[in-house]
């Protein structure tokens, strides 16, 4: 474990906790894309298949449980909770899951480190995580306004992945044989996807104006 990875995990944890608390306290999910939240729940479900078979560390297991519980409860709140679901804007959140899930699944079938069910699922979850934010970014562009918490959510998600890139660089130089192209490339693609959002987020924060993403 290195400081970059710990900071990355904590930032990632913050992003889901901030979102869950927002939805729980103000009983609203305005501006949040349910599609993205469902994709993230799928990412964790396919990423952590080994939670009961391979014990890595207490930290690892606890964090996996927190991510699984928080992502599924966010989806539950947005779909089932009688008050929260009313603020879900399903007419705007129309990104079709399959457009992301199928290509990631196909890609994982061809590009993976070992052709086993667990490995393909793990690779699928990496590719899916890279693109899972797209429905949220599309929704932000459509609704054009962004309340601060949604901005913070996307910002923390991007920051977590950027910290992970520093972690991979650190591990590459400090651990022999630590080479994982698949992880690195999908993580880089994911961070680049956030890059343009970051640019507009910083500008709006600096000029203290509401965030306006390009049409």
């Amino acid at each position: 474990m290195n400081i970059f990875r710990l900071a990355g995990d904590m930032t990632h944890l913050m992003s889901v906790i901030v979102l869950l608390l927002k939805i729980h306290t103000i009983k609203s999910c305005a501006g949040i894309s349910l599609k993205t939240q469902e994709l993230y729940a799928l990412v964790f479900a396919t990423r952590y298949l080994d939670i009961f078979t391979d014990f890595i560390s207490l930290y690892n297991t606890i964090m996996k449980l927190i991510f699984l519980a928080s992502s599924f409860s966010i989806v539950w709140y947005m779909r089932q909770h009688k008050i929260v679901r009313r603020s879900y804007d399903k007419d705007q959140d129309t990104f079709r899951h399959l457009f992301l899930i199928l290509p990631c699944l196909l890609l994982a079938l061809f590009i993976n480190e070992k052709f086993t069910f667990k490995e393909v699922m793990w690779t699928f979850s990496l590719f899916l995580e890279a693109v899972a934010i797209l429905p949220q970014l599309v929704l932000l562009q459509r609704t054009r306004n962004i309340d601060n918490l949604t901005g913070q959510y996307v910002f923390l998600l991007g920051a977590y992945r950027a910290l992970y890139i520093l972690n991979w660089i650190y591990r590459y130089f400090t651990e022999p044989h630590y080479v994982h192209w698949i992880t690195w490339i999908s993580g880089l693609v994911q961070t680049l996807l956030y890059a343009d959002f970051f640019y507009y987020y910083f500008n709006s924060w600096k000029n203290n104006v509401k965030l306006q993403l390009p049409a």
């Binding site: 995990d9 080994d50 560390s57 690892n60 996996k64 480190e113 070992k114 994982h180």
Partner: peptide, 10 residues
Amino acid sequence: PSSDQTKDEL
């Protein structure tokens, strides 16, 4: 090492 052992990241 087999790729499994290095799945120590979240």
